[in-house]
């Protein structure tokens, strides 16, 4: 069976998700889903940790740039880099072979990601509304978690 190289497939999928974050700016809830999908689901599947961190940071920067909500930017990409390193480490140490394990990991990471983003943004620009993006991302974990599970069961990063 012939498949596209993992790097190309991964890059195409990450680019699509970046476009999704960019073009769903009018709907922050949907944007939150794309953001979590990229940072917690797809970016940790990158071929190396640096690439994963760069994809996650790009997602955070695009989200903050299109959200036009925070007076000082940078908190979201910082939290994204933190969480993508954590997610990649989790995937390396305890690779989720079963779907429900992956769902559980992603749900926990999503909750942690929401807290980290909120904390980092609060540190950068002060108090701000929570919004509902994190809830939509958490609720949609079975959807994009399943996609990620079938996209690449085992990360190639070591």
């Amino acid at each position: 069976m012939r498949y596209a190289p993992p790097l190309i497939r991964h890059s195409l999928a990450a680019t699509l998700l970046l476009g999704g974050i960019f073009f769903t700016a009018p709907w922050p809830s949907l944007q939150g889903v794309f953001h979590a999908f990229l940072v917690l689901g797809l970016a940790p599947q990158a071929s190396n940790l640096l690439l994963a961190a760069l994809w996650a940071a790009a997602g955070g920067w695009i989200l903050e740039g299109t959200l036009r909500l925070y007076p000082v930017v940078g908190g979201t990409p910082w939290a994204d880099i933190t969480l993508v390193v954590l997610a990649a480490t989790l995937a390396r140490r305890w690779p989720p072979d079963r779907l429900w394990i992956r769902w559980a990991q992603l749900a926990a990471l999503t909750a942690l990601h929401a807290l980290a983003v909120h904390g980092a943004v609060r540190l950068a620009c002060g108090p701000h509304p929570w919004g509902t993006g994190w809830a939509w991302a958490l609720a949609s974990v079975p959807l994009w978690g399943t996609l990620i599970h079938h996209f690449q069961k085992r990360p190639s990063w070591r």
Binding site: A53, V72, G74, L123
Partner: peptide, 17 residues
């Protein structure tokens, strides 16, 4: 370095966006 750079950037509050 990337992570630390972002952290310093956030703590110092430099980016107006």
């Amino acid at each position: 370095a990337l992570w630390l750079g972002h952290g310093v950037w956030v703590v110092l509050g430099r980016g107006t966006g």
